[in-house]
Amino acid sequence: MSSASLPPRGRGTGSNPYNRFAPTRSVPSDDGWYEEAPLPCVTEVRVETAKSIISRNQSPDLPFDRSINPYRGCEHGCIYCYARPSHAYWDLSPGLDFETRLIAKTNAAALLEQELSKPGYVCAPINLGANTDPYQPIERDQQLTRRCLEVLLRYRHPVTLVTKGSLILRDLDLISELAEQRLVAVMISLTSLDDELKRILEPRAAAPSARLRAIRVLRGAGVPVGVLCAPIIPMVNDRELEHLLEAARDAGAQSAAYMLLRLPREVAPLFEEWLAAHYPQRAEHVMSLIRQCRGGEVYDSRFGHRMRGQGPFAELLAQRFAVALRRLGLNRRGDFGLDCSRFAPPGGQLSLL
């Protein structure tokens, strides 16, 4: 394997393919006059004054109908991230741009407060982390997620958090207070227990041990916590499924979920490039299994299929997960019932009941 084919250390990819909306494309040609400079790998954070902050969906595959994403792009650099194609909407590449040219919605908390204060607003759990990770490294300085949690706590609004960042423990004070009022549930994403695989698959995400510690600490503080084994990648991490669930259960997780690898739009060629660089001998077999799970294609976007896939491999994976779930007692999702009745905008009229 040539080192030239590997991405820069700490990044998921070294490629920056054109986004699908680009009106023109340039092809480099070596005329002998210059040497092509490597793509910059320094993280750049742009500021956005967002016009709205709560995104809504009608997907039957998701357990929530609204979400907040304080950031566009994600410094974790997970090569498989299904959110990569969204960077094309900002005239940026789903490749290296997605993990190095980030956008922070600095008015997120203020917008959230405005939307929650509208007279017609109907309370239902909001998810933080549906598209990009709310606890990616830049959150340490930006603190947009923390400010949103402060608003949600003040309004007594239920929230669910999904992250693979151990930075979530910084906000334990807010999260534990939300938990006391049945206003929060957390899902920690755990993809592998292998540090080396994590390094190349999710370069800037927290180590497996740090995520397990996050589960342990959150549960110790009385916070409902589950584990999300996602994505499961055939012939890469699928053999770890039961071990991931066992480790999470031992750390205190109460529930579990999984998702099969999704490769929408520009993610597919980026992932195939990653396979060729890191697993050249099994790359063809991995893609063959993925196509078997997606009706012969690399991706199937249909509701009811995109998260689980179909065919023998997908069915076997579902059976393994179901058996492990029962054996480990990780089927207590009902414990996560969040209380929407506590919602009370500051200054609003209190109920007489």
Rank of each mutant, 00 (worst) to 15 (best):
S2K: 15
S3P: 08
A4T: 08
R9I: 13
G12N: 00
T13Q: 06
G14N: 12
S15T: 13
P17Q: 03
R20G: 00
D31Y: 06
G32W: 08
L39E: 04
P40L: 02
P40N: 01
V47K: 12
S55Q: 10
N57Q: 09
Q58K: 05
D61R: 11
I68C: 03
N69R: 11
P70D: 09
R72M: 06
E75F: 01
G77T: 02
C78L: 09
Y82I: 02
P85A: 02
P94T: 04
A110K: 14
A110V: 08
A110M: 09
P119A: 05
G120S: 10
G120W: 06
A124W: 08
P125I: 02
P125K: 06
N127R: 12
L128K: 11
N131V: 10
T132G: 02
P137H: 00
Q142L: 14
Q143M: 14
R146Q: 11
L152C: 10
R154K: 15
H157M: 11
T160F: 05
V162Y: 00
K164P: 00
L169K: 07
L169D: 08
L169F: 07
R170F: 10
D173K: 14
L174D: 15
S176C: 15
E177A: 14
E177R: 15
L178T: 02
A179R: 03
A185P: 04
S189F: 01
L190C: 02
S192Q: 06
D194I: 04
E196V: 05
E202C: 00
R204I: 04
A206Y: 02
S209M: 12
L212D: 01
I215R: 00
R219P: 09
G220R: 11
G226P: 06
C229T: 09
A230V: 13
A247S: 15
M259V: 03
L263D: 07
P264M: 11
P264R: 01
R265A: 12
E273C: 13
A276P: 01
A277N: 13
A277H: 10
P280G: 14
P280W: 03
R282C: 07
E284M: 15
Y299I: 09
S301V: 01
E315F: 13
E315G: 11
E315M: 12
A318D: 10
Q319F: 13
L325V: 10
R327I: 04
R327Y: 04
L328A: 08
N331C: 07
R332F: 03
F336D: 10
G348Y: 06
L350F: 12
